[in-house]
Amino acid sequence: MAAPRPAPPPQPVTHLIFDMGGLLLDTERLYSVVFQEICNRYDKKHSWDVKSLVMGAEKLIVHLRKHGIPFALATSSGPASFKMKTSRLKKFFSLFSHIVLGDDPEVQRGKPDPDIFLACAKRFSPPPMEKCLVFEDFPNGVEAALAAGMQVAMVPDGNLNQDLTTKATVVLNSLQDFEPELFGLPRYE
């Protein structure tokens, strides 16, 4: 069996699109926070640091804002799920230029179809279709971004088979490892 072809080298981008799931939010610990909040009603202690739920994204988001680089969120979550997952992080998510949820009328099909990323890119003004970099953590999301004609920075779960990461433009251990200059963006100071 032939080895998979490596992804082409990174090209300059002007806009970024983030998936949310296990990429921006540590959803497992977020669910634990929600569980703990329920426990609080019964006088149990709350011991989680909400800031730590934003997984290494804060540095990158602040950097993008500082340099005026547009970025948006495209998540398969519906409104109720999104509200629950982000209720304690409203300020962080208000930094995104726009947010496209899975129930958006333009999102007819879920990943690996490109609908969600195409809908998200169209809302930038002007739409930068081929100049978008998508941050994803799952192979279906990588497929969707590539089908939309976009590059992908993948931050896979450590347990994911490495064969499932070969199509991504770059593979990172965490968002903290992202090197903006690889995609023609200003480097961190």
Rank of each mutant, 00 (worst) to 15 (best):
H46N: 08
I61Q: 00
Q36S: 14
Q36P: 06
P139C: 03
S97A: 15
Y31F: 12
L118R: 10
H67A: 12
A153K: 10
E189N: 15
E106D: 10
P9C: 03
M20N: 08
E136Q: 06
L133Q: 06
Q151T: 05
P4K: 08
Q108P: 00
L182M: 14
G22A: 02
K90V: 08
F183G: 07
N159Q: 11
L73F: 07
T165M: 02
E37Q: 13
T165Q: 15
M1D: 06
V134G: 00
M129L: 15
A7H: 05
P156L: 00
S47E: 15
P128M: 09
D157P: 02
D163F: 04
L89A: 06
I61F: 05
S47K: 11
S77T: 11
F35Y: 06
T166R: 13
E58V: 03
L146S: 01
R5N: 12
R123D: 05
L101Y: 12
P186R: 04
E37N: 13
F71Y: 15
R29E: 15
Q36A: 14
M154Q: 13
K44L: 14
G149S: 11
P114C: 10
K131L: 11
P156H: 00
I38T: 12
S76E: 10
L25D: 06
D49K: 14
E181C: 11
V34W: 07
M129S: 14
L185P: 04
M129H: 13
K85N: 02
S87T: 09
D104Y: 02
A72H: 01
L23P: 00
D103R: 10
P10H: 05
M84A: 08
G68Y: 10
L64S: 00
